[in-house]
Computed example of a mutant assay.
Amino acid sequence: MLDYDGTLVPLAPRPEEARPSPRLLKLLSCLSQDLKRHVAVVSGRRVEELADLLPLPYLFLAGLHGREVLHPAQDSRGSRLRLKLGPPGPPPGVWEEIQAHAERLATQVSGCWVEDKKEAIALHFREADPKKAAQIVATFIRFTQPLVEAHQLEYLKGNKVIEVRIKGIHKGIAVEYFLKLFPHAFPIFLGDDLTDEDAFRMLKGRGLSVLVGEPRPTLATYNLPTPAKVEDFLERLIRG
């Protein structure tokens, strides 16, 4: 189980710039086609994005931090099986209202922009002045908090991004789903972000958890410094 941004590929100023290397695609293809292994990418991105970035038919894809899962298996119409995990979302109009607040604020500071994930809204400020970004984030929380509290949502703070998502949705539920799906497998999870700590927590006392990037306080048991080293690790898995 592998996070995408910051784990399989280096972080980029914009999500569309974080593209997989040819080597990575080859490694994931080899791993996922091995009948003795099951490979999943677990990301905050939507599964449609992941499917475009990683057009490999044997991968499991878990998007929106575990909200949606795309199976390799196809139904009778040739479509891949798609599931939703976790509680139901808010009523119609709530996401649109949160997005409107985010977009209005993002226009006030250069380098801020909004990502509509359909069942989550992310306000990015990676390219913005840190002081101005902090003010925008505080204002965004103040404006949206009544909606968040009323509709069982929550804030998720990541690497220069704040996201509103459904409460109870996190990467740990994706890990739990795969552990139940493959109860006899030896689980491995690699991730770099604070959002990956929920996944590491699910593997506490079992399997292998790996933090990618600079060492920091974490529930992971091992560390790899860069996505390039992750590629080396995947290659070693293939070699056995």
Rank of each mutant, 00 (worst) to 15 (best):
A220Y: 11
T218V: 12
V114S: 06
L153G: 01
G158A: 15
A199R: 01
P146G: 05
W95I: 13
K180I: 02
D3N: 05
R45L: 02
R77D: 13
Q145V: 15
E231S: 12
L203I: 07
R19S: 08
L35K: 14
E163K: 03
P91A: 11
Y58P: 06
L59Q: 01
V161Y: 05
T139W: 07
V41I: 15
N223D: 09
E197K: 04
G66H: 05
E16D: 15
E115L: 11
V41G: 00
L179V: 06
E119I: 15
Q99N: 13
S43Q: 01
Q99M: 15
V164N: 00
L35M: 12
M1S: 08
V9G: 02
E68A: 14
A18E: 05
P22D: 04
P91H: 10
V42C: 02
T226D: 09
L85R: 07
G111A: 12
A106R: 09
D75R: 12
G66Q: 04
F178S: 01
A133F: 10
A62C: 09
A134H: 14
D5A: 10
T218A: 11
T139L: 14
I162E: 02
L54D: 01
D34Q: 03
G89T: 05
Y177Q: 03
E115M: 08
V210I: 15
P87M: 09
R216A: 11
A18W: 03
K204P: 04
K160D: 09
L11F: 10
E149C: 10
P146A: 05
R46F: 06
R37T: 13
P146I: 09
I141D: 08
P15Y: 01
Q33E: 13
A128F: 11
P57T: 08
A185F: 12
E214Y: 10
T144N: 08
R142M: 14
A62Y: 03
